Amino acid sequence: MKLPRTAHTDQPWRIHELTTDFRTEDVWSYRTPGAGPDDFPVMLAAMRTAGGFAEQPAPVRFLFAVRWKLGALLGWDKRRASLGARVQPLRDRLPRDLRETVDDSDADGSPFTPVYQLANESVSELANKTVHGVMHLGWVETGDGGHELRMAVLVKPNGLFGRLYMAFIAPFRHLIVYPALTRQWERAWRERTHPRPEGTSPRA
């Protein structure tokens, strides 16, 4: 479910001190019935078991395939436009207590590079010719005493081109990508105690 930007900005996340030059683009919530305050690692593990970013639903895989093809044709994803080249990685801004919380092996098939992970936050980033983007996953108490997963997408567009690009893909994010992730991640939570048999794939 889409949430207002304040659902992210009003939370006392550590990410705020690192992203004062980013804007909050999207905030989305994922229902996790019965979750408790210490279940954020359980949710992340369930998402990995469900395939993580390596096994997306078919509509999302198609959109990303188109995006990567365009990027290859137009040079959007070349090394000179990436983290450490066009932009300074967010990881370079980390205070000492956050620097050793993740490593590159935690990427789990995602195009994002891990930044840090805490008991209630997980942050990753990517950069290309269009944007420097940050994905923030947070664990939030709900009004009924439960907890839910929230995702915030923070961006620093690359000039006018980046702003136009983000505006163009907004309908695809809101109508296809985020709803598909909602189905996948909420199912991952529901089925966390019922792992798939070996050799099977998550449902699209």
Score class of each variant (00 low, 15 high):
1 M>C: 01
3 L>T: 06
4 P>M: 08
5 R>G: 00
5 R>V: 15
6 T>F: 01
7 A>K: 03
8 H>K: 00
8 H>Q: 02
10 D>T: 12
10 D>H: 10
11 Q>Y: 02
12 P>S: 03
13 W>I: 09
15 I>S: 00
15 I>L: 14
19 T>V: 15
19 T>D: 05
20 T>L: 05
21 D>T: 13
22 F>M: 11
22 F>E: 03
25 E>D: 14
27 V>L: 06
27 V>M: 03
28 W>G: 02
28 W>C: 06
28 W>Y: 11
30 Y>P: 01
30 Y>A: 05
31 R>F: 01
31 R>Y: 00
32 T>C: 15
32 T>K: 04
33 P>K: 08
38 D>E: 15
40 F>I: 15
40 F>H: 14
41 P>H: 06
42 V>I: 02
43 M>S: 05
43 M>G: 02
43 M>D: 03
43 M>A: 11
44 L>H: 10
45 A>R: 14
47 M>C: 13
48 R>F: 06
49 T>R: 15
52 G>R: 10
52 G>T: 11
53 F>E: 10
54 A>N: 07
54 A>C: 07
59 P>H: 07
60 V>G: 03
60 V>K: 09
61 R>K: 13
62 F>L: 15
63 L>W: 05
63 L>V: 11
63 L>S: 05
63 L>D: 06
64 F>N: 06
67 R>N: 08
67 R>W: 07
67 R>M: 09
68 W>D: 14
69 K>F: 11
69 K>H: 05
71 G>T: 14
71 G>N: 10
74 L>N: 10
75 G>Q: 13
78 K>S: 09
79 R>F: 01
80 R>P: 02
81 A>H: 13
83 L>P: 03
84 G>P: 07
87 V>W: 04
88 Q>D: 07
90 L>F: 09
91 R>G: 15
91 R>P: 04
92 D>N: 12
93 R>P: 03
94 L>T: 15
95 P>R: 15
97 D>M: 12
98 L>W: 06
99 R>D: 05
100 E>S: 13
102 V>R: 13
103 D>L: 11
103 D>N: 14
104 D>Y: 06
107 A>H: 13
108 D>L: 06
109 G>W: 11
110 S>F: 08
111 P>C: 13
114 P>Q: 12
117 Q>G: 07
118 L>V: 14
120 N>F: 04
120 N>R: 15
120 N>M: 04
121 E>V: 08
124 S>E: 13
127 A>V: 09
132 H>T: 12
132 H>V: 12
134 V>W: 03
138 G>D: 12
140 V>R: 13
141 E>A: 14
141 E>P: 00
142 T>W: 07
143 G>H: 07
143 G>Q: 07
145 G>P: 00
148 E>G: 01
148 E>Y: 01
151 M>Y: 04
153 V>K: 01
155 V>A: 03
155 V>W: 01
159 G>Y: 08
160 L>T: 13
161 F>Q: 04
161 F>A: 10
164 L>E: 02
172 F>V: 09
172 F>N: 02
173 R>N: 12
174 H>N: 12
174 H>Q: 12
175 L>G: 04
175 L>H: 09
177 V>T: 07
182 T>L: 01
186 E>R: 07
187 R>K: 06
187 R>G: 00
187 R>T: 12
188 A>G: 00
188 A>P: 00
188 A>W: 02
189 W>Q: 02
191 E>P: 00
194 H>K: 11
194 H>W: 08
195 P>N: 04
195 P>D: 07
196 R>V: 03
200 T>Y: 01
200 T>E: 04
203 R>S: 08
203 R>D: 10
